[in-house]
Design a protein around this nucleic acid. Structure first.
Length: 679
DNA sequence: GAAATCATACTTTTT
DNA sequence: GTATGATTTC
C-alpha cells in the first residue's frame, strides 16, 4: 500500500502516536498522504463509520474517500463520515436536532439570506419604534452580517469587533445589538439556521442529551486544509478529542487564504501545543519544476511568522516562469490565447491548462475571446446563480413548501403579488406558518392570495407524494408567468429555472435538494445541468480561491498588478496584504511545468458595459513581484509594454509612472453565549 | 400610507 | 444587473 509513498509521506500515513499535525507544502502529495492514512487506519482495524473526514468541499471529500477505498477496500467510500464542517453539522443536527431544541426540519440560510433577514428585522425595529431611517447612513446589511459572523466565529464581544474591525460603525452599536438580538429570536421561531449556527449547533450537541452519542462517535478525525479553519472549528475538534478521538490536521500556513471568512492561521500554528500533537513536515514538492518553485519561494521569502519550510523540487528543471508585460487587457487576452493554442498544438490538452485570477470579472474579456475562437472552457468561482432574483424567487417558494414557518421566504414570495410591497409582506409573513394561513392570505389579498396558497400547499403535497421534481413543477406553474412579467431577459432566466427543475428531479427529497444547494452550491458554470461532455477537452478558468488543491501543466495568472493582486479592497492592514501574497503563492504553485504571470499596464475600471468602462487606469506591477522575484523569471511582452517596462528598470519601485488612483449549548444556551457577546 | 417608478451608485475571495 | 433612495402615483 505504501509502495508509492516517500519516507516523509509514509511517516505521516503510518503515524500512531496520537494527535498529529501534517504540515504539507504545496504539491507535496497531501491528498495522497491523507488518503493513505485513511486507508492505513482502516487496515489497522478502525471501522470506517468511526472515522470522520473533514474537508473544504464535497468534491475533495469524495476524491479522498475514493482513493482510500481503492487502497484498502472495506467500502470506505460509503462508510466513512466525510464532508465539510457545515455539511457534517447539518447531518448531525437533522438527526439529533431535537436534543438542542431545534426542529430537524430547519431551513439553512445562506449568506445573502442572513443579510436579508437582518435587514428585515432592522426595518421592523424602526417601524416599531417610529425611528427615522433617513437621518444618516446605516451599515449595509452585508456589513451587519459580517459583523455578527465575526462576533460569533471569533467569540469576541461586539464592542471589540466594532472597535477593531468596523470602526466606522461604532455609532451604530446599540442599534446593531438590538438587531442581532431580534435576528436570533426570529431565526429560532422560523426554524432557520445560518452557517455559523450549524457549527454552534454542533457544539451545542456536546452539551445536550445526545452528547454521549455525538462526542464519542469517532475514533479518528482527519481535517484537511486546516489553515483555513476558524476558531469555532478548532473548538469542535478539541471537543471531539476530549470525547476520545485522535485528531489529524493537515494544512499549510503558507496557503491560508480565507482570513476574510474569519479563518485564523493561529489554528495551525498553535495546533501542536493545544493538542499535544506530533508533527510531520512534507517539504518535497513532486509537482512543480525547480524554476517554478524558485519563483514561488521568492514570493514567500519576505513574509513573517510561519512554520519554517522551504520547498524543494524532486523534478528535472524546465523553463523559467515568464513575466509578460502587456499594454492593456486586450493585449493580455491575445497573449494568453496565443500561448494556450500554441501549447495545445504541442500536445498539452486544454484540460491541463488553466487561467487563474483574483476576482471573477477579471476573465470577462477573455471569455468573450474564447467564445469567439470557439475554445471550450469551464469557469470556477464567482458564480452567483443562486443569487439571481428569479432563482431566489423559485427557491423561496420551495423553501415554504419544505418549511412553512420560513418567514423570510414568505416575505420575498408575497411581494411577487401585484400591489404587495415590503410593508404588507412584513405584516402578513409572521401569520402564515400554519394552516390558518390560508384564511389570512385570502382575507388580506383576495383571489391572488388564494392562488398563492394553493401553489405552495400544492408544492408541499407534490413533494411529499411524488418528489422534489413534481414540487418544482407545481411551484413554477404559479411562478413562471410572474417571472416573465417582472424581469428582462426572460429566455435566459427560464433556462436557469429549467436547470433547477432538472436538478431537483435528481434529488432524493425537497429538503435535501435545498440543503445541497446551500451547503454545496454549483461551483462552475453549467454545473447544475450536470456534466454534459465528459470526453470533451476544455480549458479551466478559475478564481485563485476556487483553484485551491488543483494543479495543471500550464498556468496563466492574469492581472498581477497592484490593485488586483493585492486587491485594493484588501489593503486595510498588514494581515490582509499578507493574505494577498499567499494568494499569489497559491496561484503560482498550481503549475507543474509552465507558469506565466501577466501584467497589463493599463486596464479598465468598472464594468465594460457601463459608461464608466471607458475610464482606464495605469497599473503597476504587483508589489509582490519584487526585484528578487523577477530575477527568477524571464520577461517578455509586446513592444510598447516591453519598452515601458524597460524604462522602469532601475527606477526603484516598479512603476515609476505615477498611477491614477484606482477608481474608485443546547441552542438556547449557545444563543445566550452569543447574546452575552452583544455587549 | 403604501406601492410603483425612476435615478443613481456600486460590484473580492466563499462554507 | 442589482440594490438603494427619492419621487410620483394610487
Amino acid at each position: 500500500m505504501f509502495g508509492q509513498l516517500t519516507d516523509q509521506q509514509q511517516a505521516a500515513a503510518r503515524y500512531d502516536g496520537g494527535h498529529l499535525l501534517i504540515v504539507a507544502g504545496a504539491g507535496t502529495g497531501k491528498t495522497t498522504t491523507l488518503a493513505a492514512r485513511l486507508a492505513a487506519l482502516v487496515e489497522r482495524g478502525i471501522a470506517p463509520e468511526r472515522i470522520l473526514l473533514l474537508t473544504f468541499s464535497r468534491r475533495a471529500a469524495a476524491e479522498l474517500v475514493q482513493r482510500a477505498d481503492a487502497l484498502a477496500g472495506h467500502d470506505i467510500a460509503r462508510r466513512t463520515w466525510a464532508g465539510t464542517f457545515h455539511a457534517v453539522a447539518n447531518r448531525l443536527l437533522r438527526r439529533h436536532g431535537w436534543a438542542v431544541g431545534l426542529d430537524p426540519g430547519f431551513t439553512i440560510l445562506d449568506q445573502t439570506d442572513a443579510a436579508d433577514l437582518l435587514a428585515l428585522v432592522r426595518a421592523e425595529l424602526h417601524a416599531h419604534h417610529g425611528t427615522r431611517t433617513t437621518d444618516r447612513r446605516r451599515p449595509k446589511k452585508e456589513t451587519m452580517a459580517a459583523i455578527l459572523s465575526r462576533v460569533v466565529t471569533t467569540s469576541t464581544p461586539l464592542s471589540v469587533v466594532l472597535r477593531e474591525s468596523f470602526p466606522w460603525c461604532a455609532d451604530d452599536h446599540d442599534e446593531l445589538r438590538a438587531t442581532f438580538e431580534a435576528y436570533t429570536a426570529r431565526k429560532r421561531s422560523a426554524h432557520l439556521v445560518d452557517y455559523d449556527d450549524l457549527l454552534l449547533g454542533w457544539s451545542a450537541l456536546f452539551r445536550s442529551a445526545a452528547a454521549a452519542t455525538v462526542q464519542s462517535q469517532f475514533d479518528h478525525v482527519l481535517v484537511d486544509e486546516y489553515q483555513d479553519t476558524n476558531a469555532q472549528q478548532a473548538d469542535l475538534l478539541q471537543a471531539l478529542a476530549a470525547g476520545g478521538a485522535t485528531v489529524t490536521a493537515v494544512g499549510d500556513d503558507a496557503q491560508a487564504i480565507y482570513g476574510f471568512r474569519n479563518a485564523t492561521q493561529r489554528n495551525i500554528l498553535e495546533f501542536p501545543d493545544r493538542f499535544g500533537a506530533g508533527a510531520v513536515v512534507l517539504d518535497r514538492n513532486h509537482r512543480s519544476t525547480p524554476s517554478i518553485l524558485a519563483t514561488a519561494n521568492a514570493v514567500m521569502a519576505e513574509t513573517g511568522k510561519r512554520h519554517a519550510k522551504t520547498l524543494w523540487s524532486t523534478r528535472h528543471d524546465g523553463p523559467r516562469p515568464v513575466l509578460v508585460a502587456c499594454t492593456d487587457e486586450a493585449a493580455q487576452v491575445t497573449a494568453v490565447c496565443a500561448r494556450i493554442l500554441e501549447a495545445h498544438e504541442q500536445g498539452v490538452a486544454l484540460r491541463d491548462q488553466a487561467v487563474l485570477f483574483r476576482t471573477a470579472h477579471h476573465s470577462d474579456l477573455l471569455e468573450l475571446e474564447l467564445a469567439a475562437r470557439r475554445i471550450p472552457y469551464v469557469k470556477f468561482g464567482g458564480l452567483r446563480v443562486l443569487e439571481a432574483a428569479h432563482v431566489k424567487d423559485l427557491l423561496c417558494v420551495l423553501r415554504i413548501a419544505a418549511n412553512p414557518r420560513d418567514e423570510l421566504a414568505w416575505f420575498r414570495v408575497l411581494q411577487l403579488i401585484d400591489g404587495v410591497g415590503p410593508a404588507t409582506a412584513r405584516r402578513l409573513a409572521p401569520g402564515l406558518g400554519d394552516d390558518s394561513g390560508a384564511e389570512v392570505l385570502a382575507g388580506a389579498l383576495g383571489p391572488p392570495g388564494d392562488e398563492m396558497w394553493e401553489a405552495v400547499a400544492g408544492a408541499r403535497r407534490a413533494a411529499r407524494e411524488t418528489g422534489p421534481g413534481a414540487a418544482v413543477e407545481r411551484a413554477r406553474a404559479w411562478l413562471d408567468h410572474r417571472v416573465e412579467a417582472r424581469y428582462t431577459n426572460v429566455a435566459a432566466r427560464v433556462a436557469d429555472l429549467d436547470e433547477l427543475t432538472a436538478a431537483a428531479s435528481r434529488a432524493a427529497s425537497l429538503e435535501q435538494f435545498l440543503t445541497g444547494l446551500v451547503l454545496d452550491p454549483p461551483s462552475a458554470t453549467g454545473e447544475l445541468a450536470g456534466p454534459p461532455h465528459l470526453d470533451d477537452d476544455w480549458l479551466t478558468l478559475s478564481t485563485i480561491h476556487s483553484a485551491k488543491g488543483a494543479e495543471w501543466h500550464s498556468v496563466h495568472v492574469l492581472h498581477v498588478t497592484d490593485g488586483n493582486i493585492p486587491s485594493d479592497l484588501a489593503t486595510g492592514d498588514d494581515d490582509a496584504i499578507e493574505e494577498e501574497r499567499r494568494l499569489l503563492y497559491v496561484a503560482m504553485t498550481r503549475a507543474r511545468d509552465r507558469l506565466w504571470c501577466y501584467v497589463p499596464l493599463r486596464y479598465h475600471t468598472g464594468l465594460a458595459r457601463t459608461r464608466l468602462g471607458d475610464r482606464h487606469v495605469f497599473a503597476q506591477r504587483s508589489r509582490f513581484l519584487t526585484a528578487a522575484v523577477v530575477a527568477t523569471m524571464d520577461t517578455t511582452g509586446d513592444d510598447a509594454a516591453a519598452a515601458a517596462t524597460a524604462a522602469r528598470k532601475g527606477s526603484g519601485r516598479p512603476g515609476a509612472v505615477q498611477p491614477e488612483p484606482v477608481a474608485t449549548a443546547p441552542l438556547a444556551a449557545v444563543d445566550s453565549v452569543v447574546a452575552s457577546l452583544l455587549d
